[in-house]
């Protein structure tokens, strides 16, 4: 299916947020996730089903002011 990940169009096979992270190489990386602007807790990623047109955000720690 076709979704957007961090603002970029992305063709993916994953059905859940958890498997998306694996598919895109985020495994064991420290990240937080949101699906269509709603926060998804790490422990809920396996139940977060993806659909065509979804927007996923995958964020990591960064310098900030």
């Amino acid at each position: 299916m076709r979704i957007r990940v961090n603002g970029e169009p992305c063709e993916i096979a994953a059905q859940t947020l958890e498997s998306l992270l694996t598919e895109l190489g985020y495994e064991s990386q420290i990240v937080a996730t949101a699906l269509n602007q709603d926060f998804v807790r790490a422990k809920d990623r396996n139940e977060a089903m993806l659909s065509d047109g979804d927007a996923v955000e995958i964020l990591a720690p960064k310098q900030g002011g």
Binding site: G25, Q29, K62, Q63, G64
Partner: peptide
């Protein structure tokens, strides 16, 4: 203060910071 930003899969930049 710190923030969150988009990061590509496989990057370790956020983790080292």
């Amino acid at each position: 203060t710190v923030s969150l930003r988009r990061e590509a899969g496989g990057s370790r930049a956020g983790e080292s910071f």
